[in-house]
């Protein structure tokens, strides 16, 4: 995917300005930056989830396999079929665990091997062992971390081509986090992953490329997110070019 001159407004407020970078296929791209700099905003514009926010306007283009997803002849639903998303907070449906995972399959009209697909998705999300005995009980009875893994399983079940993850591990313990990171590595053979994370170590460990965003404050006190630097993760962490990147990754961000 390629972002070209992406700016996002919330009403009059410019939240993100002129972000351009490429997301390489079958690689894991991490988006890092201080809170409020627009990471979620950029991520949401990659599968048109911003369409749902009132007053949100996107300028510039986001090309997915060469096609602008904001073009008039592209339907948002079709974009999201291929570019799945896991949110910052877990959002299980008030249904059973099984019904949650099978949900996307039902939408896509897939009937064959549903049970196997559900099991596979749950295994991938490191949740199978914990829930295999109670697939028919409510998803709301799971812990926060289990709910988040359920949401990951739910997104994986429909086998998206790109998976967007907004701090998927913020509610998980280190073991589950490590499992998710392994999973991402496995998955990246088949799909492209963009992950927003607050955890620099996670970005350094688990991603191939990293984009660093930060907030700029103008004379009127308006805060706008801008892209500072994007590079292969090793390079970005070892030899940041921009001073602001260096300050952020060494923990001296002011």
């Amino acid at each position: 995917m390629t972002l070209n001159g992406l700016s996002v407004f919330y009403g009059e407020n410019l939240a993100v300005r002129d972000v351009s970078f490429g997301v390489a296929a079958n690689r894991i791209t991490a988006i890092i930056g201080p809170s409020g700099c627009g990471k979620s905003t950029v991520l949401r514009s990659l599968n048109r989830m911003n369409d749902l926010i009132d007053g949100c306007r996107v300028i510039g283009d986001v090309a997915y396999r060469g096609i602008d997803i904001y073009a008039p002849d592209v339907e948002a639903v079709e974009v999201r079929r291929r570019i799945g998303m896991v949110f910052q907070r877990p959002t299980p449906f008030p249904k059973s665990i099984y019904q949650n995972v099978v949900y996307g399959l039902k939408l896509a009209g897939i009937h064959d091997a549903r049970d196997d697909r559900v099991e596979h998705a749950l295994r991938q999300a490191a949740l199978w062992d914990e829930v295999s005995g109670r697939l028919d009980s409510s998803a709301l009875g799971l812990s926060g971390g289990q709910q988040q893994r359920l949401c990951i399983a739910r997104a994986l079940a429909v086998e998206p081509d790109v998976l967007l993850m907004d701090e998927p591990c913020s509610a998980l313990d280190p073991i589950a986090t490590a499992r998710i990171e392994d999973l991402m590595a496995e998955l990246s053979e088949r799909l492209t992953i963009v992950i927003v994370t607050h955890n620099l170590a996670q970005a350094a460990r688990a991603s191939h490329d990293t984009a660093f965003l930060t907030t700029e404050v103008d004379d009127h006190g308006n805060r706008t997110g801008v892209l500072v630097e994007v590079a292969p993760t090793d390079r970005l962490f070892a030899h940041p070019i921009d001073e602001r990147t260096e300050q952020y990754i060494t923990g001296r961000f002011g």
Binding site: V77, R81, R82, M85, L107
Partner: peptide, 11 residues
């Protein structure tokens, strides 16, 4: 969030 989750799954 539930409506958004539906959309994010391609619904």
């Amino acid at each position: 969030e539930l409506r958004h989750a539906n959309l994010a799954l391609g619904g």
